[in-house]
């Protein structure tokens, strides 16, 4: 499995999650972490795509943090 495809799968799986509250935050953080671990294995021309997938997850996390305030 190449790292880019695996990162895409993890990204979509996290975004499809129907968890809520802390469980959702934990799931998104796990996906972010795992995608980050795949970064060194990704082909150089795919690394920016992998980092931007994580940006999308991080943006969602920031939105959830804002909602919970």
């Amino acid at each position: 499995m190449d790292a880019y495809r695996e990162a895409q799968r993890l990204y979509a799986e996290a975004m499809l999650s129907h968890a809520s509250g802390r469980e959702l935050i934990a799931e998104l953080e796990r996906a972010l972490q795992r995608i980050g671990e795949l970064l060194p294995q990704a082909a150089p021309d795919q690394r920016s795509a992998v980092l931007l997938m994580n940006s999308s997850i991080a943006e969602r996390l920031a939105g959830l943090a804002e909602e919970s305030r």
Partner: peptide, 22 residues
């Protein structure tokens, strides 16, 4: 600065983060 394996984020309050490393 954006820590970790993330390019950067636009935050709800209008501020932004950006990765120094990446």
């Amino acid at each position: 600065e954006q820590p970790g394996p993330v390019a950067g984020v636009c935050l709800p309050d209008g501020s932004m983060t950006i990765s120094r490393e990446h």
